[in-house]
Design a protein around this nucleic acid. Structure first.
Length: 816
RNA sequence: GCCCGGGUGGCGGAAUCGGUAGACGCAACGGACUUAAAAUCCGUUAUCCGAAAGGGUGUGCGGGUUCAAGUCCCGCCCCGGGCACCA
């Protein structure tokens, strides 16, 4: 071969062409059909990993496909640049987080360009730049004025040795990752955003997102967790204040045999003062981390407080316990326990010898033994006095009505969703624009004093934020009264930056508003691609922020992402590839060895996008081999000179067959790209077509014309996945235009027509033969042909035919 | 613990609406080319029985619906993701 495939030469030339032609820079053209194609931006960890290559390649394929379909495509890229790894690097290696981050960004940008992604780099965003975070500080101050943010105490993981707050991932088996000390729960004041104000809308509008995967919508619905229940008060003997609880099962009220409160509940604190055992228990409850998974799986412990609540219907006394599984921050910090009809209450009652009372019976009248197993179904009330015999709905209504009349309770819609705590006790984040004044309390930084710039030249020691030790940052006059005041030193959760970056890409250089007119042209994002691990938090926060921006008059759009593709993880050794786990595979080596196209092709071919992909180093070779065969096939074809014009109507035999395959493949790949996002099967179809082209050894004018048409189609259709080699081969095929400006091939329906079709014959559902019949053969002919088959005869011989099922074009099933 | 996915040859996966299980690729084996190796090309490859024709078995496990189940229903097991401070 005189002209072997050299990926590096081919790829650098194609990239230079796109750069020189500014192929991916787009403006706002009202006459064009816009398509905003976005991928979740990366954290600049410094090294590209396979998860990045996967998600960015998927998105680039979709973007390039829609461009070939004639859309005006925007595909931007940027950096989710704040976060913990930069602080860790600073502590371990003494490099300031900013310096480390900017250097990582430069490295990764280079890697992305080498992979040939079609980004509009003129819109690049970096969230740790004041030009960016200034606007989220601004939005926060607007939310502050509207009462959409507030400050309250909440629980953090406290490392008593390092004297610092730990992230959940820094807690390993209940201990601090550096100190190995047992982590404690500690309450500190933090800022919250009222996402619960939007709970109803966020829930209801999930129904208007047909372009989202169903599992993601289900997860969000469950997360928001709307429930209808009753909030009611139990008087406590000897106490002035009643104990308020929320229940979704008021029908089980007569089954209450005890109450339980959180360790931080005022009743527990009060009992602890006189009872040292309770005091010790309350202390012990705080010696655990604050993760839900820990709380749900730990041993359920509790002890009686020695006080009683009065059952609001019977007047009976029920004991009040303190329990480690009841949390102050959820609901009212107290629960009514119905051990007969709640799994956790049942388990707890069994363990502590508390009474279990059956108040619900199965609707079918069957008997159950409540001492043997808890009964969770909605049924008919029993042992409930005047409510006996009622079903769930009637009992719910009757009991709710009763308490509304007595004033002891009311119906209440509750959400599992909690307000979003955005304070982080860390340095490397957006400063929260608040100033604390002894006289004026918390004051928002005025708009003309924004941004509050994060000092970048710092030294991190690993014990708390260095901002606290910087008087020039902390000490400021109060914006309201001018007296000496202090700046907030907490920073925002990094999810805040990622909750609106998609909108900012439309106008990244706007310096007099968060968003300008250009946002109206591009929003919403037409296609959003990212990891399934973001199915709840990031996507829910973004939907919330979009609505906050809407209500601020910045946009008319409520839903930020019209279509969502959640790609599966790249796993290595059965676990998520992550910097934390240290099981990252470096794609750089593969790019150097085989080129970007091979890596892109392999990632798209190895698994369907939604499924997780277990990484293995094998198989890349096969993708490389395919590209070489592809290259050689085109070179050998063009060596024979230009092909003659195709006369489709005169084709016969294998030429007609190859042309049919070409058009079947166009139809298949169009569907796989556009509708199914099934790139692995699209690649397989292209491979099959190329195999068929290679098998055809017909150097006649008609043969060359058919082969040329097939090769041209493969080059265009594979170009979203392997754009560099296709760019080159398009030129080799003698085309004057640039492939990036071409259009997708069209299916010629007349080429798809078949005369004969093979039909499977089954006897009792087992495959026994095949017959070939005319495409339009009637059911009767089909049945007759099937029965005439020799092998079929062997199996039906001497038996009565009970039934024959004929599915035209597919099969005949003979039941004997 | 709770919520959401997944489980198909030696491996990655295909089978799109209940209708031929294993497309496409990897690996392996056999052959061609070569002094040799690499590269490339051709062939075989779920498994068991059989010389072949053909037949039995087979989509994590146990049941069920159906003429027909990888696909639908019920009950399990195992693996992955999320669980509010990793991003």
């Amino acid at each position: 071969m005189s002209n072997p495939y050299n990926p590096e030469t081919v790829e650098l030339a194609a990239q230079k062409f796109w750069d020189d032609a500014r192929s991916f820079e787009v403006g706002e053209d009202a006459d064009k059909d816009k398509y905003y194609c976005l991928t979740m931006f990366p954290y600049p960890s410094g090294k590209l990993h396979m998860g990045h290559v996967r998600v960015f390649t998927i998105n680039d394929v979709i973007a390039r496909y829609h461009r070939l379909q004639g859309k005006h495509v925007l595909q931007p890229m940027g950096w989710d640049a704040f976060g913990m790894p930069a602080e860790n690097a600073a502590i371990q290696r003494g490099i300031p987080p900013a310096k480390w981050t900017y250097s990582n960004i430069d490295d990764m940008r280079g890697q992305f360009k080498r992979l040939g992604y079609g980004y509009d780099w003129s819109r690049e965003l970096t969230t740790c730049r004041p030009e960016y975070y200034r606007w989220e500080q601004w939005l926060f101050t607007r939310m502050f004025k509207k009462g959409l943010v507030y400050r309250k105490n909440s629980i953090v993981n406290w490392d008593p040795v390092d004297q610092t707050v730990l992230a959940n991932e820094q807690v390993i088996d209940g201990r601090g990752w550096r100190s190995d000390a047992l982590v404690e729960r500690r309450e500190i004041p933090q800022w919250f955003m009222k996402i619960t104000d939007y709970a109803d809308e966020l829930l209801e509008e999930l129904d208007n997102l047909p372009g989202w995967p169903e599992p993601v919508k289900i997860m969000q619905r469950n997360w928001i967790g709307r429930s209808e229940g009753v909030e009611l008060s139990f008087d406590v003997a000897g106490e002035g204040e009643p104990l308020t609880v929320y229940t979704t099962r008021p029908d089980t009220l007569m089954g209450v045999t005890y109450m339980a409160v959180a360790a931080e509940h005022p009743l527990a604190s009060k009992a602890a003062q006189s009872n040292p055992d309770v005091a010790a228990f309350v202390e012990a409850c705080k010696k655990t981390d604050a993760q839900e998974a820990t709380l749900e799986t730990m041993e359920k412990k509790g002890m009686p407080l020695g006080i009683s609540a009065i059952h609001p219907l019977t007047g009976d006394e029920v004991p009040v316990w303190v329990a480690n599984f009841v949390l102050m921050s959820y609901g009212t910090g107290a629960i009514m326990a119905v051990p007969g009809h709640d799994a956790r209450d049942w388990e707890f009652a069994k363990k502590h010898g508390l009474p279990i009372k059956q108040v619900i019976a199965p609707t079918d009248g069957s008997r159950i033994d409540i001492d043997e197993a808890v009964y969770l179904e909605r049924g008919v009330l029993v042992n409930s006095g005047k409510y006996d015999g009622l079903d769930f709905d009637s009992a719910f209504n009757a009991i709710a009505k009763h308490f509304e009349a007595t004033g002891q309770g009311q119906r209440k819609v509750n959400f599992r969703l909690r307000d979003w705590g955005v304070s982080r006790q860390r340095y490397w984040g957006t400063p929260i624009p608040i100033i604390y004044c002894d006289d004026c309390n918390a004051v928002a930084v005025p708009e003309d004093q924004l941004p509050v710039v994060l000092p970048e030249d710092v030294e991190l020691k690993g014990t708390g934020s260095p901002l606290k030790d910087m008087p020039e940052f902390v000490n400021v006059p109060c914006p309201q009264c001018g007296k000496d005041a202090k700046r907030e030193t907490d920073t925002f959760d990094t999810f805040v930056e990622s909750s609106w970056y998609f909108a900012r890409y439309t106008c990244p250089d706007s310096d007099d508003a968060m968003l300008d007119e250009r946002a109206k042209y591009w929003a919403p994002v037409d296609q959003y691609t990212g990891g399934i691990e973001h199915a709840i938090l990031h996507l829910l926060y973004s939907r919330f922020f979009q609505r906050v921006m809407r209500d601020e008059g910045l946009t008319d759009v409520s839903e930020p992402f019209t279509n969502l593709l959640t790609q599966g993880m790249v796993l290595k050794d059965g676990a998520k590839m992550s910097k934390a786990k240290g099981n990252v595979v470096d794609p750089q080596e593969l790019i150097e060895k085989y080129g970007a196209d091979t890596v892109r092709l392999f990632m798209m071919f190895a698994a369907p996008p939604e499924q997780s992909l277990e990484w293995s180093d094998e198989g890349v070779q096969g993708s490389y081999r395919f590209l070489k065969r592809f290259w050689t096939a085109v070179q050998e074809h063009t060596a024979g000179g230009p092909a003659a014009k195709l006369d489709a109507d005169s084709l016969t035999g294998q030429l007609k067959e190859l042309r049919r395959k070409t058009h079947q493949t166009i139809a298949k790949i169009s569907d796989d790209f556009g509708r199914r996002h099934s790139f692995n099967t699209a690649v397989a179809a292209a491979m099959e077509l190329l195999n068929a082209i290679n098998k055809l050894a017909d150097e006649s004018a008609a043969g060359r014309a058919v082969a040329r048409e097939a090769l041209q189609a493969v080059v265009v259709m594979l170009s979203p996945i392997v754009p560099h080699i296709c760019h080159e081969l398009w030129q080799v095929l003698g085309n004057e235009s640039a492939l990036i400006d071409e259009t997708w091939p069209e299916v010629d329906d007349s080429a798809l027509q078949l005369e004969q079709v093979e039909v499977v014959v089954q006897v009792n559902g087992k495959l026994r033969g095949r017959v070939t019949v005319a495409v339009d053969a009637s059911k009767e002919i089909l049945q007759a042909e099937a029965l005439a088959d020799d092998n079929v005869q062997r199996f039906i011989d001497g038996k009565a035919i009970r039934k024959v099922i004929v599915v035209p074009g597919r099969l005949v099933n003979i039941v004997v």
